[in-house]
């Protein structure tokens, strides 16, 4: 197991290097630069700025310089947020994103699995239709519609909750962002759980258990739930990565100082180092979570451990 984990970690290094190289080429290939504005800089000023940020060097040299920094753990200065380094920006924004993401994921798992199980047990009944219908809506109605609507109803009209992250303190300000983040995840998880539950429920050993007189609750609890949730694992890895690193829309609508906004703003502003830093960070998280999921499979499913 340890050997397997080590091999996987070693295998991740070339992947990350490749991600860095491709991302580096792509941000530099995009037209315009971090200091381009409508108020065009006079040529000598542009030269000074480019020199200060090493943008005047040939691209390969810039790449080597950047890679050297990354290896030392230095993601460079942000071009747009000039008083901060990329590492500082990520470190400051991460706790907020992580907290929201973790809450949303826990909520999504709890509600999603419960809804999925219920729907599967009451297959083709009104309850099932309700759950699958809700899941359909959750998946297809985008967050940028749901979130502002929530603000309008619960903050502006009813005045129950703060309209933004900075508009309140404590738990209240978390409610709407967490729900907004969790909604599509709940829907996905419910659908996945339902499908795999139905699949497991029709398997031979469940029929045997039933034949031996076990009640539905016991069957689900001891025999079905674990194998039924297993297919969720491969979905949860990337989903956690996505939710943890923040949702741009949720962050914008609720004014949350998280990581997600930096990604979009960084790309639009051609903030090369910021975009690269977050890409690397994201890549590392995705790889780590995939590894964690693979290892968790081993724990959850003895058949995989045996291989």
């Amino acid at each position: 197991m340890l050997r397997y984990a080590l091999l996987r970690i070693l295998g991740a290094i070339p992947t990350i290097l490749l991600v860095i190289a491709i991302a580096f080429l792509m941000v530099h290939a995009a037209p315009g630069g971090p200091f381009d504005e409508e108020r065009v800089l006079p040529p000598e000023i542009e030269r000074n700025v480019e020199r200060a940020y090493h943008l005047d060097e040939p691209l390969p040299k810039q790449f080597v310089r950047y890679l050297g920094g990354v290896l030392r753990g230095d993601l460079g200065p942000s071009y747009r947020y000039r008083d901060y380094t990329v590492s500082e920006l990520i470190a400051n924004a991460l706790p907020v994103s992580m907290r929201l993401g973790a809450l949303a994921m826990l909520l999504a798992l709890a509600l999603g699995i419960a809804a999925g199980v219920l729907a599967a047990l009451r297959k083709n009944t009104v309850l099932d239709r309700l759950v699958t219908g809700f899941a359909m809506i959750g998946i297809s109605v985008p967050v940028f519609v749901v979130a502002p609507l929530m603000v309008l109803v619960f903050a502006v009209l009813l005045d129950w909750l703060p309209a933004s992250w900075t508009g309140g303190s404590g738990g209240g300000r978390l409610i709407m962002p967490v729900i907004a983040l969790a909604l599509p995840q709940i829907a996905y998880i419910a659908r996945l759980t339902r499908a795999s539950m139905i699949n497991v429920m029709t398997s031979d050993y469940v029929r045997t258990a039933r034949a031996q007189g076990l009640g539905t609750v016991a069957i689900v609890r001891y025999h079905v739930l674990k194998p039924a949730v297993l297919p969720l694992m491969s979905y949860i890895g990337p989903a956690i990565a996505g939710v943890l690193t923040g949702s741009v829309v949720v962050e914008q609508v609720f004014g949350i100082p998280g990581v997600g906004q930096f990604f979009i703003q960084g790309a639009l502003n051609r903030d090369y180092t910021l975009v690269l830093g977050i890409t690397i960070f994201y890549a590392v998280i995705v790889i780590a979570l995939n590894l964690a999921v693979d290892l968790a499979y081993g724990f959850l499913d003895p058949r995989i451990r045996a291989q």
Partner: peptide, 13 residues
Amino acid sequence: EPMVELNRYRAGE
């Protein structure tokens, strides 16, 4: 986002 800003204003924030 101006729309988000306005909602915050309307919510008294």
